Amino acid sequence: MPAGIQIRNDNGTLQIDGVSQHMVLLRSGVATTGALSNSRGDVACSTCQIAQNGNEILAIQAGVPFSIAGRYGGNTTVNIFGAGAGYQFSYWVFGGYTPSGDNFGILLKDGNGTPIWDSGRPPMRVIGDVAGLGDFTVGQAGRSYALAVQLQYGQLVRQRQAIGTDQMLIQTVYAGFASINGQAVHVENTDYLAEVVGPIASSAVPDSWDGTWANNLQNTYTVLDVTHY
């Protein structure tokens, strides 16, 4: 029979064993947003940055829709739709195991004696995925959940409007946004950025400027149980 330890959650999902590298909680916090330039104007929007390395997973618990705008220089930009500057939300960052530094508790090593988990690093608890648009119910009442983005819809629309012999250039950005309140998850595609430039001489605007570009991705999120994390 197989040797070693196996620890499973209430759903029977393997969380910890004596062989595998484990995804664990590295850090968590509360982010506060600042102003978002060029937002739609009719709906409050805001933004912030959270430190995230390339091999880490960022999970967010926001009661208003959020979207990942990109990652650069070790920071991930999070945009908020429906709340202005000063909005606060909780986040958790998971990654490959690194020792917690605790000198008490449980320490597991693999067959080579290399530490692979200790009780100072809570494991990443995945309960499932949410995909598509609309409203979803996840998990169990009384638990706390957060969302990690797997895939996110994005679209850029460019148009022009004639002003005499000149042109006004209008650029609109759409993205997938998600919110989570208790067990309730809501996912939508929303136009949240709108930029107007001009007037510009018509001769200075190439015909190729207009158009619509979309990544055609289906919004997909991993649901993580962060109760007591």
Rank of each mutant, 00 (worst) to 15 (best):
C45E: 04
V223S: 11
N216A: 14
A214Y: 12
A69S: 12
Q161R: 15
L193G: 11
T220E: 15
Y145H: 11
L217E: 08
D102I: 08
V205F: 08
V64D: 02
P99W: 04
L169I: 14
W213H: 09
H22K: 10
N216E: 15
V43E: 11
T137Y: 13
L224T: 03
L151C: 10
G70E: 09
V126A: 04
L36A: 14
E56V: 03
N216G: 14
V93N: 05
G96F: 07
V223N: 13
G120K: 07
N38D: 10
V149P: 00
L193A: 12
R27V: 10
V185E: 09
L133E: 10
L25W: 01
A214D: 03
G128K: 03
L151N: 13
G4C: 09
A31E: 06
A175G: 14
G101N: 05
R160S: 13
R160I: 13
A51C: 01
G70F: 02
G111W: 07
Q161W: 13
Q171N: 15
G139H: 06
Q21Y: 00
T13I: 05
D166Y: 05
L14V: 05
G139Q: 04
S202P: 04
L108R: 04
N189K: 12
N216I: 11
G132H: 09
G142L: 04
N181E: 14
A31H: 14
S100Q: 05
R143H: 07
Q49L: 00
R71I: 03
G82W: 02
F81K: 09
Y192G: 07
V126K: 13
N79A: 07
W117A: 06
G120N: 03
Q140T: 14
P115F: 01
V24R: 00
T98R: 11
G211E: 13
P122S: 10
L147W: 00
S144K: 06
T172V: 15
G134I: 11
A146L: 10
D135A: 15
G198W: 06
A31L: 15
G182Y: 11
S90Y: 05
M1H: 15
R121G: 03
Q161V: 14
V126T: 14
A131C: 09
C48T: 14
V226F: 02
S179C: 04
R40I: 15
F177K: 10
S20N: 12
S28V: 08
A85M: 02
Q155I: 00
T114Q: 07
A204I: 01
A85C: 08
G101E: 10
G96H: 09
G139A: 06
G154A: 09
F89L: 07
G63R: 09
M168Q: 13
Q52E: 00
